[in-house]
């Protein structure tokens, strides 16, 4: 495709695309610039840079919305969900991908239910109550792992097929049992696709509003997206602080996106080709 000639038609298309990218950029600027403005200036909702840059907005919102606590909680929740999901899915995908029997075909369909069916809130809360982990981070983490398993299994099972079986046999001859084979041979080879899984599950978990909204109601377990939601409800006129909170929710994901772009694209490709 690179060999195509760059004609004036392409140039016009390019200009049109650059202009239409403003549809994405302008709203982001309203938020970003707004987060440094005074509350009355921010409530003008324009995308001019602030007259005076008020970095103090961030200090204020971190204090008022308990953002340190939320950041700690969100990080802990995201890291746990990502780690456990990746490990159990890698193990599961390894077995399902290698055994091509009826059980693994059934399980493939079974797990894909998780991509389609929405979470069933009331029985989930009832279950967490029975296990005495309602309203706790651990309860939320377990539910989030379960809801990410479908995607993880889908992604990893497709990838296992690309690792040659001969490696397994060679490892076996060298005296590896199943677990050793998984840990020393399969897992290192899964690294690129695991990265994709980590990035995509991590972003979904960090950004999730619905699950913590339903499952957590105590202040000490608050997550980053919840702080924005609550803060907006409480201080609805302080747009500068709301914007600052939104920026703080988004920034970690933007960094991850920029650093890990190739893994995200790889994940999307995997989805696009295999369906």
């Amino acid at each position: 495709m690179g060999s195509r000639k760059y004609t004036w038609k392409t140039a016009i298309l390019e200009i049109c695309m650059l202009v239409s990218s403003l549809v994405i950029v302008i709203p982001l600027l309203v938020v970003l610039f707004g987060s440094f403005k005074t509350s009355s200036e921010a409530a003008r909702y324009n995308f001019r840079p602030p007259d005076v840059w008020l970095f103090d907005n961030y200090r204020q919102v971190i204090e008022k919305a308990h953002l340190w606590l939320a950041m700690k909680n969100s990080t802990l929740i995201t890291v746990s969900v990502v780690a456990v999901t990746s490990l159990v899915c890698a193990l599961g995908a390894f077995i399902i991908g290698r055994r091509k029997d009826r059980l693994s075909r059934f399980l493939g369909t079974f797990f894909s239910l998780g991509l389609i069916v929405p979470m069933c809130v009331v029985p989930t809360i009832l279950l967490l109550n029975l296990l005495h982990i309602n309203n706790t981070k651990i309860g939320l983490i377990l539910v989030l792992i379960a809801s990410n398993i479908a995607w993880g299994m889908f992604l990893l099972t497709n990838f296992i097929d690309t690792i040659p079986r001969e490696l397994d046999e060679a490892a076996f001859i060298d005296g590896c049992g199943p677990l050793k084979l998984f840990w020393h041979v399969i897992l290192p080879l899964l690294k690129p696709v695991l990265m994709t899984n980590i990035v995509i599950v991590g972003m979904g978990t960090w950004n999730d509003l619905q699950t913590p909204l339903y499952l957590l109601n105590s202040g000490k377990n608050i997550t980053m997206p919840l702080t924005v939601y609550n803060f907006k409800g409480q201080y609805f006129s302080e747009w500068n602080l709301i914007f600052a909170d939104m920026v703080l929710v988004a920034i970690p994901m933007v960094i991850v996106y920029i650093v890990c772009q190739k893994y995200i694209v790889a994940g999307i490709m995997a989805g696009a080709v295999k369906g």
């Binding site: 456990v84 490990l87 159990v88 899915c89 193990l91 599961g92 390894f94 077995i95 399902i96 290698r98 055994r99 059980l103 399980l107 797990f111 239910l113 998780g114 069916v117 979470m119 069933c120 029985p123 989930t124 009832l126 279950l127 377990l142 539910v143 792992i145 379960a146 809801s147 398993i149 479908a150 299994m153 079986r165 397994d168 046999e169 076996f172 199943p178 677990l179 084979l181 998984f182």
Partner: peptide, 27 residues
Amino acid sequence: TDFLYPKYLLLPVILIFVVFFIIPVIG
């Protein structure tokens, strides 16, 4: 080579999925 891929390694993923996703749906 099936013995290299024992079914019990499926337990963690099935357990979590069934307990925290499927059981709530059935419930």
